[in-house]
């Protein structure tokens, strides 16, 4: 797709008008081993993890792999450190590792489906799996931004516009554009940090 993000699909990742406070509460609760934390984490990130599993190991094995991810996450919850990154990234790091292991055990190359318009099945190596996880985490993080900030960020990073160009295009004050970019950067970075720092597995 390149620089264009189709709004029809963008809606699949819910927009939020404010940074959800429950997210950090969830992460702290998970790290502390709260009784309902795994279920809450599943409700929050289950679709992302399951979709990732479908894309990497295929429909038939996706449920088993996603189950393995969440059970492993629960058993190794003590290794999750909210200071190092978001819970979504940490879960996706486990999913990435397990997807690669799963495909190695199956003795086949990782498979992934192509875009909606080509539909081809193409082989993908471990770094492709890593990239799928990274892109899905970024998509998830964009969905967590407030609508105005998301628009600004997409214009900045996807369309490579300057702050001034964004201000002109959106009719926002230049200072607002700068603040939106400045505040969004750490949120987007943190969303992917759990994955890029290697995550944690059993």
């Amino acid at each position: 797709m390149g620089a264009e993000v189709d709004r029809r699909y963008s809606r699949r990742v819910p927009d939020r008008t404010t940074e959800p406070p429950e997210r950090s509460e969830l992460e702290l609760s998970f790290a502390d081993g709260g009784d309902s934390a795994l279920r809450t984490a599943y409700d929050r990130y289950g679709s992302m993890v399951y979709t990732f599993c479908q894309r990497t190991v295929g429909h038939d094995d996706a449920v088993e792999l996603a189950q393995d991810v969440f059970v492993s996450a629960w058993r190794s919850q003590g290794s999750y450190d909210p200071q190092r990154g978001g819970l979504g990234g940490w879960l996706m790091a486990i999913a990435r590792n397990k997807a690669i292991d799963h495909l190695r055990r199956q003795g086949r190359q990782p498979l992934t489906t192509g875009g909606e318009h080509d539909g081809d099945i193409e082989s993908a190596r471990a770094d492709d799996i890593e990239m799928i996880a990274t892109r899905m985490l970024l998509a998830e993080a964009l969905g967590e931004l407030a609508p105005r900030a998301r628009q600004v960020v997409e214009l900045a990073f996807l369309h490579d516009l300057t702050h001034e160009q964004i201000a002109t295009k959106t009719h926002l004050p230049l200072g607002t554009v700068k603040i939106d970019v400045r505040r969004s950067l750490p949120l987007l970075q943190r969303a992917m940090a759990g994955l890029t720092s290697g995550g944690a597995d059993e």
Binding site: M1, D6, R12, S47, T51, G143
Partner: peptide, 13 residues
Amino acid sequence: VAGQLTDEDFQRD
């Protein structure tokens, strides 16, 4: 990363 985003990355099953 943003430059490589696809429609599929936003889809959730």
